[in-house]
């Protein structure tokens, strides 16, 4: 038996949330007295993949067939299932993301495996295999006994702190047979903002609501985000009104983020918005209304006008560097 961890690549680098998944899998391997193997799909340098060793992996399987160059959850699921079988893996760890949920689930159905997504902590192995997962959109947790012979877990950002050690993993090529059924969809085009920080990966998110008054007033928010190295998000009405692109919409019906720092600018703090940010470590709310519900969910609050406060914060960040 062994532990298998899937890592997502972003332009050839292992994503930060994936390194957390490696650390998470390696920790289970340590307790179980076995090894942690990583599966990476797509283009990457061997040296980059070997760096997963610093987080506890001993081996990296690298599937790099040209058909796998674009993200395809169905094909990736087939590769994952093949890797599980080759390695005799009993526990499979994926970071939680749209791609990983889809490929993990399809692999689970192929293997008859348990799938538990949204895991927030290391498992409790004292009595069976129990994991804590986030439910009701961050409003509660469920501890779940995972019973399948193969267990596939999707872990949320910050489920474990990934600290780099010194090891290096052996990288070996992995070329399972790829099937036609996985490639029936034709990708017609992609519209992707380039050079943008990923919202779900970002350690800091600066987000704006209807209080920002209009798309032409977004610059002070973008300036603060840039000074902090933060990704930018928005509330639902803001993306509904096309002030900001849809992929920035955070909340119950949008993206769920879990940064170390979330700064909400002119967002009222409706429960549906909070559902997307309640896993953040520290929340700052800036709102001109002292009664805004966001202050009940925030760690730090400023009652004031965003157009006065934001430029001053940006200046303070720059001066503190």
């Amino acid at each position: 038996m062994s532990i298998l961890i899937f890592v997502e690549l972003d332009n050839g680098s292992i994503k930060k949330t994936s390194l957390e998944a490696v650390a998470y899998g390696a920790e289970i391997a340590k307790v179980k007295g076995t090894t942690a193997t990583v599966l990476a799909i797509g283009n990457a340098e061997a040296s980059e993949l070997a760096s997963a060793g610093a987080y506890g992996a001993s081996k990296v399987l690298h599937a790099n067939a040209s058909e796998l160059a674009t993200e395809n959850a169905m094909a990736y699921a087939s590769v994952l299932a093949a890797a599980v079988q080759q390695e005799g893996a009993e526990v499979v760890i994926l970071p939680k993301s749209g791609l990983c949920d889809s490929m993990g689930a399809r692999a689970a159905a192929k293997l008859g495996a348990s799938i538990v997504s949204g895991v927030t902590e290391l498992p409790d192995l004292t009595d069976g295999f129990k994991v804590k997962r986030s439910i009701y959109t961050g409003k509660a947790f469920a501890t779940v006994a995972v019973k399948g012979a193969i267990k596939i877990l999707g872990i949320k950002k910050n489920a474990i702190e990934a600290i780099a050690g010194s090891g290096s993993a052996e990288v070996v090529g992995f070329s399972p047979a790829l099937g036609g059924g996985d490639f029936v969809a034709k990708v017609i085009s992609q519209e992707k903002a380039s050079g943008e920080l990923s919202l779900t990966e970002a350690d800091i998110v600066v987000s704006g609501g209807r209080g920002m008054k209009g798309p032409e007033h977004w610059q002070p928010l973008l300036d603060l985000a840039q000074s902090l190295g933060a990704a930018t998000g928005c509330s639902k009405p803001v993306s509904d009104l096309d002030w900001r692109p849809h992929h920035e919409h955070i909340g119950q019906t949008g993206i769920k983020v879990a940064p170390n720092l979330y700064i909400a600018c002119g967002i009222s703090g409706a429960i549906q918005h909070l559902a997307g940010v309640n896993s953040s470590k520290v929340i700052v709310a800036i709102n001109k209304d002292p009664e805004a519900p966001f202050f009940k969910a925030a760690d730090y609050g400023i009652v004031g006008d965003v157009f006065d406060i934001l430029p001053r914060l940006t200046k303070a960040v720059k001066e503190s560097k």
Binding site: V144, G148, G301, I309
Partner: peptide, 22 residues
């Protein structure tokens, strides 16, 4: 059933928000 519920928990209550004068 490949996964069964053991128990539910609620998140720890949030501490008070520290207000910073504008």
């Amino acid at each position: 059933e490949l996964a069964t519920l053991d128990k539910y928990t609620l998140p720890a209550p949030k501490g008070a928000c520290k207000m910073i004068p504008a």
